[in-house]
Design a protein around this nucleic acid. Structure first.
Length: 931
RNA sequence: GGUCGCGUAGCUCAGCUGGUUAGAGCGCUGGUCUCACAUACCAGAGGUCCGGGGUUCGAGUCCCUGCGCGACCACCA
């Protein structure tokens, strides 16, 4: 073991001043980095496939796949929360004896990374096109090599116990091979196809997007009503035009028809006739189509097949042309099949400028009938927020319905559970209505689509290996220019990271995995697709539990983000308060699935509780080492049970209760069979409850009560002192184990110094505690009650703790012996000299315990008894008056007759309550003032 | 438009299948540097559990409704 770097170690001279060997203040910074290094050196986080039951070992595997952050991202609070949750689970299971694997890695993040690099080269005046594809990819690789993976380094600072020897990257050769394999298999199964249709297009990123990547944003827009004149006179004079409503007038240049509902009587006789498209002066037909909603707008809708997915389908049904009038950058021009539709003065305008120009022209010509404000959802690019332009193009799609089937069934039958439960409905709903997934991206950064086209014979080949010539005609081939959606590769994460498609020892031992921890935002992007892929390629679910945690927000409930400036840098928190404080705060404050609210303007308020808790732990440790020494302690089993004192039994019983509470809160780690039984399906993973149970044991029970009660015994030589030392050490040891997953650093630092610690053993892999079945702690409860009662009376009369006072206990018969025996202890903790059973007439403050034991605090000479008596008597008189009034009312027959029953009931209740209060007050007066 | 969630102490939140006196942390008040800890200890105040109705012996918890937030989904232009 290295000692040179252990900066928290006091020098030999300090050691004398600090008999505990621990500095008085916990130095998180020094302790944390040093301990983390030693964990890594000891290889504690490295998983061993051969030790799992799946590979002939005796351990159950417990596997968590880290949601790969974007390779270029830096750690923010969201990552902090996400990874802390995972680390807590992983550390818990590791201590439980599972062969744990927490596999870390990063995502190449196609659009995001490409955008970042394009911004970078723009400073040099370059564009990706000026550089060319090969050079651009090279530059991006260099950028990733330089800045990528920072976040993984940062995760170590918050204590993540991931297996860094298995760090994965979606664009690595190994995972790229998995991507190709997956693509080709789906292609061969007919689940990947090429389609010509209207997709979401980002005119800034210059790529198509999936439905999920085009986010809806509520926007205040306008609904324009435009008259399209009929080309021939109609019987009814007033209907010389048909009015259509649109939010995007600029698309009218690409209109090929006007559609009405087949059963719409208003337009029945117009179907089959034609109108003249304003501005373009093209004659277009009026068609009848079911897709038209007669109740919206005028009931007539313009059809722009190339720039609207619905219109595209209408046009297909009616075999209409599909002129493209907006290009890939959002400029209005004649792109394809437009045939002079776009007036000269509109060509070259941006789509929004064109909209204004068109509205102006229509207003001038009188074709614009009406404009009304209209609030609707506009789709925007999830990466750059640019308004998405629907665009007709050639793309690759995955046929989702067959893949969704088993994924749906898995959640319906409980093979996979999603927590919180409510997300299961969302998941099911999405899968039931799933549409085909556009997976091609017109980007350069990503996995190039492994498809080759033969210009000779026209064959389209998907291939695992690069093709140089056509497998059919041996002619020259060219590879598809596009790359795959980033989420295609991350969807393979649970098995591609384990070596698939090879049958590696890792894959055998660690697939399927166990719990997936992530935020609900990527339930569809990622989680659902992993599940579908799990079934498609591995034949079984990739995990049995999806744990969806909340979002980190500021005090205004706004999501934290760097761009909004309301973020908290987890590394700042680590620097100021320590990683343990950060972890404790997020875990303790997190209801299942609830958002975490933190105040970026007041880190102290947010994180002090965590830091304070760690300080408390540290101080318990200091006391223990200073007073129980660091030599061997008596094993608990070696103590004859009858020699245990009441406090010993009590704390051991509390320990059992805490272990049970922690276990219940964390829940079963996995289902018992191949699916979750209804009884336990939604239990467990209540990390805040677990944290609370462990904290209460450590602080409120061990430190506040047991430690205080045991101080005198520790000072004594001999057997009882040894027993106290043993119990204290034992309970603190177990408390450290329970707490370790939440605050790993401080607990490890203390545990390593516990009396009897064996060199080379680690808390990180120490066995998780089990309840031992202790009982007999309840006798100590009456002792605690007596102490609290004396303290309360002391507080009531403002007697400073330094003032040792007399206290007289008149025990009920039941606990007489107990209180007698514990009188010294009671006195010490309540700072009083305790006498038992000597009732006297002297003036005393008075209280009654739950079992009837009376507590008297003689006050002669301590307070002005005359004044206090006068005050109490006034109080008693006032109470008597009120009581008399209530009783009179209740005795009044007329009141009982006329008042509402609930009023009578309330009065009766009041009478009972005041009557009880009067009894207590009267006793008080009697003991203080005499009768 | 559809689906779902939330509204509990000044603040941030627990409160599981309805069951004694609704909890925690922070904050607040009073008292303490009591030899592990003032990043602490002791005691205390503070809640019509958003409003209204209902079911029940009993509702913070279940049902209906109103108000106020929020999330997700969405091919009525």
């Amino acid at each position: 073991m290295k000692t040179s770097s252990r900066t928290q170690d006091p020098s030999p001279t300090e050691r004398q001043e600090q008999p505990s060997g621990l500095p008085s203040l916990y130095d998180a910074r020094a302790v944390e980095s040093e301990i983390y290094e030693r964990w890594i050196e000891a290889g504690l986080f490295v998983a061993h496939p051969e030790r799992t039951v799946r590979s002939g070992g005796d351990r159950l595997p417990f596997v968590v796949m880290m949601p790969p952050p974007n390779v270029t991202s830096v750690l923010h609070m969201g990552h902090g929360l996400n990874n802390t949750v995972q680390d807590v689970l992983v550390r818990w299971r590791r201590m439980c004896g599972d062969e744990t694997l927490w596999l870390p890695g990063t995502d190449h993040a196609g659009i995001a990374t490409q955008n970042a690099v394009e911004k970078l080269i723009a400073r040099e005046g370059e564009t990706r096109h000026s550089l060319g594809r090969a050079e651009f990819v090279r530059r991006t690789e260099a950028f990733v090599a330089e800045t990528g993976g920072t976040i993984l380094q940062q995760l170590r600072a918050i204590g993540c116990s991931a297996d860094w020897t298995r760090t994965a990257y979606t664009l690595s050769p190994r995972l790229s091979r998995a991507v190709r394999e997956a693509f080709v298999r789906l292609f061969e199964r007919g689940l990947i196809y090429r389609g010509h249709r209207v997709i979401h297009w980002c005119p800034r990123c210059l790529t198509s997007l999936s439905d999920e990547e085009a986010e809806h944003h509520e926007t205040d827009g306008k609904l324009y009503h435009i008259a399209y004149p009929l080309t021939s006179a109609h019987s009814r004079e007033e209907e010389r035009a048909i009015v259509v409503a649109t939010t995007r007038p600029e698309t009218m240049l690409g209109d090929v028809a006007v559609a009405v509902h087949p059963e719409d009587a208003r337009y029945a006789d117009l179907v089959g006739r034609t109108v003249l498209l304003p501005l373009s002066n093209v004659e277009i037909p009026i068609v009848a189509d079911e897709a038209t909603d007669p109740d919206f707008g005028t009931g007539a809708v313009k059809i722009t097949p190339a720039h609207d997915p619905n219109d595209f389908e209408v046009a297909q049904r009616h075999q209409l042309a599909m002129p493209v009038v907006i290009d890939e950058t959002g400029i209005v021009r004649e792109v394809m099949d437009a045939g002079g539709r776009v007036p000269d003065d509109l060509r070259g305008l941006d789509r929004f400028a064109a909209r204004e120009a068109i509205v102006r022209k229509l207003t001038e010509s009188g074709a614009l009938v009406r404009v009304e404000p209209y609030r609707h959802a506009v789709r925007r690019c999830y990466r750059c927020s640019t308004v998405v332009e629907p665009r007709l193009s050639e793309q690759w799609f995955v046929r989702m319905k067959p893949l969704a089937q088993p994924a749906l069934q898995a959640v319906r039958e409980g093979t996979i559970r999603i927590l919180p439960e409510r997300w299961e409905a969302v998941y099911v709903n999405w899968l039931e209505n799933i549409r085909d997934w556009n997976i091609s991206r017109q980007l350069w950064w990503g996995h190039r689509i492994p498809v080759w086209y033969c210009d000779g014979c026209g064959k389209v080949s998907a291939s695992r290996e690069d093709l140089a010539r056509c497998p059919a005609c041996s002619g020259p081939v060219r590879q598809d220019e596009d790359v795959l959606d980033t989420w295609f590769s991350s969807g393979l994460w649970p098995f591609s990271t384990l070596g698939w498609p090879d049958e590696t020892p890792d894959l055998k031992a660690f697939y399927p995995t166990d719990v997936l921890v992530t935020a609900p935002e990527i339930l569809f992007f990622w989680v659902a697709r992993m599940i579908m892929n799990g079934y498609a390629f591995m034949g079984e679910a990739p995990f049995h539990t999806v744990y969806l945690h909340g979002t980190v927000r500021d005090t205004n409930h706004v999501k934290m983000s760097k761009s909004l400036g309301n973020g908290i840098d987890p590394l700042d928190v680590v620097r100021l308060y320590g990683a343990d404080a950060l972890r404790y705060t997020v875990i303790a404050g997190m209801g299942l699935g609830a958002d975490t609210i933190l105040d970026p303007n007041d880190l102290e308020r947010s994180f002090a509780p965590g830091r304070n808790f760690v300080t408390k732990l540290w101080n318990i440790g200091r006391y223990l080492l200073a007073n129980a020494g660091d030599g061997e302690v008596l094993p608990l089993e070696a103590i004859p049970p009858e020699k245990l004192r009441r406090a010993d039994r009590w704390i051991l019983e509390r320990l059992d209760a805490a272990i049970a509470a922690c276990d219940a809160a964390l829940g079963p780690a996995r289902p018992t069979g191949d699916r979750w039984s209804p009884e336990v399906r939604y239990t467990g993973l209540r990390l805040n409850e677990y944290a609370e149970a462990a904290r209460t044991l450590t602080w409120n029970e061990l430190a506040d009560w047991y430690l205080e009660s045991v101080k005198a015994r520790l000072a004594t030589q001999g057997e009882d002192g040894e027993i106290a030392r043993s119990v204290l050490t034992h309970v603190f040891d177990r408390a450290l184990r329970l707490l370790h997953p939440i605050v790993p650093f401080a607990t490890e630092a203390l545990w390593q110094r516990l009396p009897g610690h064996q060199e080379g053993t680690w808390l990180a892999v120490a066995p998780w505690p089990r309840p031992a079945g202790w009982s007999g702690g309840s006798e100590f409860e009456i002792v605690r009650e007596a102490i609290v009662a004396i303290r309360q009376l002391r507080g009531e009369y403002n007697l400073p703790p330094a003032r040792v006072i007399r206290a007289v206990l008149l025990p009920s018969s039941r606990w007489s012996a107990v209180l007698q025996e514990e009188a010294e202890l009671i006195g010490r903790l309540a700072r009083a000299s305790v006498e038992i059973g000597a009732a006297s007439a002297e003036p005393a403050a008075h209280a009654v315990l739950t079992d009837g034991t009376e507590v008297l605090l003689p006050l002669a000479g301590l307070i002005d008894i005359e004044r206090e008596c006068a005050r109490l008597r006034r109080e008693l008189e006032s109470l008597d008056r009120q009581l008399a009034a209530v009783r009179q009312r209740l005795n009044d027959a007329r009141f009982l007759e006329r008042a509402k029953p609930e009023v009578v009931a309330a009065e009766k209740e009041r009478e009972a309550e005041w009557s009880t209060r009067r009894t207590a007050l009267a006793r008080k007066v009697a003991s203080l003032c005499g009768t």
